[in-house]
Amino acid sequence: MVENRPFVTILAHLVLIFGVALVALPVWITFVGASHDGARMLQAPIPMWPGDQFFVNLRQTFLGNGLDGTRTAPVWMMMFNSLVMAMMIAVGKIAISLLSAYAIVYFKFPFRMGVFWMIFITLMLPVEVRILPTFEVIADLGMLNSYWGLTVPLIASATATFMFRQVFLTIPDEMLESARIDGAGPMRFFWDILLPLSRTNIAALFVILFIYGWNQYLWPLLITTDANMMTIVVSIKQMLEASEQTPQWNIIMMTALLAMVPPIIVVIAMQRLFVKGLTETDK
């Protein structure tokens, strides 16, 4: 703070507290909604203060078969699907991006620039603009309703490749020269030197990609028709539709809570890595 103006400082805190409250409000309402019984959640105005049914709802939601009248799998199974999808996407993206960035930076080979531009192009082809044909490819390959179908089309990544390329470029050339004089071959150099030196970047990227993977919506919506393959994020939509006939807001809110808690925990627990990942990949 440059000068002492208590009034402005107090104002700053007030505005920030108001902002935090406003941002948190929807989640608070969700939490409150998840802590009352179904009947209470049908009377307007809905409560603003938590009730005592939280653990009852948690138990029913987590283990039960979702809503009455929907064909969703148990929430724990959908959370497991989400976890598998998020992990596969994060690990897969990191692995193939590390390898291709390594090839592009440390090897000189014909078509190197061609490969670089091909990877660059993926930046311009988000899933949303090629929905139908990509769906057809997955269908033709028989990958519908499988973890592979859910994840593999999403793991090509220009941003991750570019980030690792950037990281590798900042590693002094002498590391490689020294390793070569020490007698390290390409894969040995990759394992012994490059990977350990990129550790924090890998972790930061993992945090971002885990959230990205967990929160996928459109793609799983298309690829999974089998209730047992559904992810928890996608199931919310199903539940909202069902609620138009038989609203069970306490269960929906609990499911929503369960769907957002894992990535939120990741962000808050690994805040430093999260910020690093977000600012360095530049999206």
């Binding site: 002498e174 590391m175 020269e177």
Partner: peptide, 9 residues
């Protein structure tokens, strides 16, 4: 090497 090129990890 000029910058020693020690493996930092």
């Amino acid at each position: 090497f000029q910058n020693y090129a020690l493996y930092p990890h």
